[in-house]
Amino acid sequence: MGAVTTPSIRADVKNLNFFYGPKQVLKNISMPIYENRMTALIGPSGCGKTTLLRCFNRMHDLYATTNYQGQIILHPNMQNILSSEIDPMEVRMRIGMVFQKPNPFPKSIFENVAYGLRVRGVKKKSFIEERVVKSLQQAGLWSEAKDRLHSHATDMSGGQQQRLCIARALATEPEILLLDEPTSALDPISTAHIEELITELKKDITILMVTHNLHQAARTADYTAYMYLGELIEFGLTDKIFTTPSDTRTENYITGRFG
């Protein structure tokens, strides 16, 4: 897998510190996110993976006691998306996110997927319908959902709900897609499908994914970042991290001796 030549950078995390109130959860993280590649975030539970992911779409701004220091520079415009001068809404319109826990709206399947377009003011029915079908197909939910587009989304199974959330994020065609353990609630077949989807999507968009499944990271990620207690221990090509890690902590984690 892996790229032969280094691809261009899509986003650059620079000296990022993050605090929940007085508690520092991310410690001086710096790493590049490469364009049209998949970067996996791995590490033991509570090490700050979700927290880092949520910095990328300014989700933390919704809560008063959170605090960022440092930058995430979005290329090629070189905007710092953490800057208070940039509206979080703009960031969220360009960077999509799928959460760790499935969170469909208690509305119809169709309305769930169409929501991102509706808030952008898209009115054209045929366009919305087209996009909903395409996103459901991409997320591998179409065959199950096509006969019940107007039934309640919360009546679906957990795995179906998670794929619906993926479809909802895809409908607005984000530049960067953030995935927080998107396959943790899925069976092996749906998981394989999502992994295929990610490989397909990489042609057009940049993906940052948290996963606890090391095999999944090894299979699908071009780059892997290993985090531990809020620090970025090691970042590099997936092949290198999994075969010849340079830090013993990384080695211990991926060989299962720890965490």
């Binding site: 989700m59 919704l62 979080p88 809404m89 969220r92 999509g96 991102g116 959330c165 909802r168």
Partner: peptide, 8 residues
């Protein structure tokens, strides 16, 4: 969060 995440 789901609503804000798509840019609402």
């Amino acid at each position: 969060e789901a609503s804000y995440a798509v840019g609402a």
